[in-house]
């Protein structure tokens, strides 16, 4: 079973990397971009097939390691 954990910076946390990317996009002439925030995506292959259990496993993974909840939010998705 495939799953995805997406980790993003909380609102209000300064993201200098996102800002630099935003600046680069603007200087490349890519129009219509208001702002950029950089995050992380983890594509995870799960061993079991139980969907409810999978969500609990992914939440544990995110809380214990993948995200630092001081500055980051996360979202888990079981893709099937």
């Amino acid at each position: 079973m495939k799953a995805r954990v997406t980790v993003t910076l909380k609102t209000g946390i300064l993201d200098p990397q996102g800002k630099a990317i935003e600046g680069a996009l603007k200087s490349l002439g890519v129009d219509g971009i208001a702002s950029v925030r950089q995050g992380k995506v983890f594509d995870i292959e799960l061993a079991g097939a139980d969907k409810a259990k999978a969500e609990a496993v992914l939440k544990a993974a995110a809380d214990k390691l993948l995200a630092n909840t001081v500055i980051e939010n996360y979202r888990v998705e079981v893709l099937g």
Partner: peptide
């Protein structure tokens, strides 16, 4: 900080 022994976090330097 990551281990929870101290609060907060060290982010990327402001001027990168």
């Amino acid at each position: 900080c990551e281990s929870g022994l101290l609060p907060g976090i060290l982010m990327r330097n402001a001027r990168l």
